[in-house]
Write a protein that binds this DNA or RNA. Structure first.
Length: 212
DNA sequence: TACTAGATAGACT
DNA sequence: GTCTATCTAGTAT
């Protein structure tokens, strides 16, 4: 409302061609946008996890498992990989390039645009509880299985430039306790001290941002 | 902090 | 047909 949204445009394909771990960090601070006939909803990405293909037991594509569900992971980077989990839909960014099935899970957002719409979709008023989890953010933005395989460089679902985080924390991934040694890999990234992260956890280390 | 129910798609036998 | 799962919300301890 009254805010200047003119500069919100999708990031180019080349953005998605960096290595998955780099992409996971680069996505922090970016704006995830979904436009529907109800309006636009968007938030800054504040938490991600990397899932690195055939060698990662926690990844759906472990051991190059190629099924109807994981098919899109084998396609080009920058596509949306949505996945139904219990009653929720989770959103991943395909990475790694053709025939290299990697992905970045977006775990939490900081609400930015369309906040009233998000509250309506979630049926709650608490801003702090709106998008602080992978299932919550998809519901807030209206991301569904219909977005499976869509390009993030095109409307209605896309990622745009946001801000540059001062510090990034690194730790173990969440919710993959049955994945053997893979559960200890430090492939979770979040913006240090951001209150919208899904879970507060001790970081293994922190990265002071030098890019942007 | 710990547990449990909810309620569903996809993978596999 | 059976089992598992990148989760959430609610309740009990």
């Amino acid at each position: 409302m009254g805010e200047c949204q003119k500069e919100i445009v999708p990031l180019p394909q080349v953005f998605y061609q960096q290595p998955t771990l780099e992409l996971s960090k680069a996505l922090l601070g970016c704006l995830l946008v979904k436009e529907t006939n109800l309006g636009m909803a968007a938030g800054y990405i504040v938490e991600t996890e990397a899932y690195i293909g055939p060698g990662d037991k926690a990844a759906h594509s472990y051991n190059n498992r190629r099924t109807a569900r994981t098919e899109v992971m084998f396609h080009r980077s920058g596509l949306a990989y949505t996945y139904q989990m219990h009653t929720h839909c989770l959103f991943n960014v395909v990475s790694g390039g053709e025939e290299n099935p990697e992905a970045v899970l977006v775990r939490a957002l900081e609400p930015r645009y369309g906040i009233e719409l998000m509250k309506t979709r979630r049926g709650i008023q608490d801003l702090n509880n709106l998008t602080n989890g992978p299932g919550k953010l998809t519901k807030s933005l209206g991301i569904t299985m219909e977005d499976y395989g869509s390009s993030l460089t095109l409307l209605p679902l896309y990622i745009a430039k946001g801000f540059c985080p001062e510090s990034i924390s690194v730790g173990k991934r969440i919710g993959i306790d049955n994945s053997g040694e893979a559960k200890d890999y430090p492939w979770r990234f979040w913006i240090t001290n951001n209150k919208f992260v899904s879970r507060h956890q001790k970081s293994e280390y922190e990265i002071k941002s030098t890019k942007c």
